[in-house]
């Protein structure tokens, strides 16, 4: 199973100190944004990371792309530890791992034409001459369904969906192995979301890409994922292939998350037994002891406060971190 991992996380941890640490004060509180996260991404497949705000999924994405440095743990790309890469190696690394962000408008320079923006990575890495770059950008634009004749238009002349296509084109410019997509469709209208998801799947099969797909919504993920990891307060609570996670979910949080997603089917809405969790997600500063979900868990017992549950294999490729799995 683990034969061909393109990307691997081992015991990844990221702690942020909070607030401005004033002079002459005790060390400040620490946000445990990502804590002991491990998984492997098989080549040519998609791993989805799902969780609510504050679960650490975006921090994890940035760690994987090495946009930030981990507090502990390592990330392996093709078996090579990239957390210890030198700055020159890092530049090469950027070719292999690219990021697609939620809001494409925020990361396209408004004063650059869309073609220039897409070509930026090529210019930075100096992989092609200027003339070749232009040809390559046009090719990329066609690939993601943008009209290559719009090379000289500016970001504001495009719709949200088209801008996200441009964001994807830019990520593809250097022919990466892995794309980290951080909520790539969340900001888009429903009818456009499906277009982008289809595009990503097409590109995956034609170019052999591997995706880490970060989402807050379990329903978006189902189509595209080969593996789903559910995160809660910095930890993976359940991971497995979608059928296992969706149909045989064993963690109470996964179950609640699934039941909370509004279903576009009024008949189903009445019949479905809904688990409404009480309260909000606790602060990742000083998270609850033991199992971090216990404060909202309908099944929590004394043991959950005392002892932290480990990710345990339940069936082949399906792991759960819970003392009392469903």
């Amino acid at each position: 199973m683990n034969t061909d991992l393109v990307l691997e996380a081992r015991g990844l941890r990221k702690y942020f100190p909070t607030g401005a640490s004033k002079m002459l004060q005790r060390p400040t509180d620490v946000v445990q944004a990502v804590d002991e996260v491990s998984f492997g991404l098989r080549r040519g497949t998609t791993l989805a990371i799902v969780g609510e705000s504050g679960c650490g999924k975006s921090t994890l994405g940035r760690l994987l792309a090495r946009l930030i440095e981990p507090t502990a743990g390592s990330v392996l790309l093709d078996g090579k530890d990239i957390t210890k890469a030198s700055s020159r190696e890092l530049l090469a690394l950027r070719r292999d791992i690219q990021v697609v962000f939620q809001d494409p408008y925020a990361c396209l320079n408004p004063r650059h034409s869309i073609g220039q923006s897409i070509g930026t990575p090529i210019r930075i890495q100096k992989t092609l001459s200027r003339a070749d770059e232009k040809a390559r950008v046009r090719e990329l634009m066609a690939l993601v369904g943008l009209n290559p004749e719009h090379y000289n238009r500016f970001p504001h002349e495009f719709s949200g969906g088209q801008r996200q296509r441009a964001g994807i084109a830019r990520a593809l410019a250097l022919q990466p192995k892995v794309i980290i997509a951080d909520e790539p469709v969340s900001a888009l209208d429903v009818s456009i979301q499906a277009q982008i998801l289809n595009l990503m799947e097409d590109l995956q099969s034609s170019m052999g890409l591997s995706y880490v797909f970060i989402a807050h919504d379990l329903s978006v993920v189902r189509h595209i994922a080969d593996q789903v990891a559910v995160m809660y307060l910095g930890k993976i609570v359940e991971i497995g292939d979608p059928t296992a996670v969706y149909e045989r979910s064993a963690h109470p949080y996964t179950k609640a998350l699934l039941s909370a997603v509004p279903v576009a089917d009024p008949k189903g809405a009445g019949e479905r037994k809904r688990i409404v969790l009480s309260g909000d997600v606790p602060s990742p500063v000083n998270p609850p002891s033991g199992c971090r979900f216990r404060t909202r868990c309908p099944k929590a017992e004394a043991r959950c406060a005392a002892e932290e549950p480990l990710l345990i294999e339940r069936e082949s490729g399906h792991q759960v971190a819970c003392h009392f799995p469903l």
């Binding site: 499906a194 329903s219 189902r222 059928t243």
Partner: peptide
């Protein structure tokens, strides 16, 4: 994207 559709099934966007 209904929760019931299968993995990698083609979506039908507008």
């Amino acid at each position: 994207k209904s929760l019931d559709t299968a993995r990698h099934e083609r979506l039908e966007p507008i």
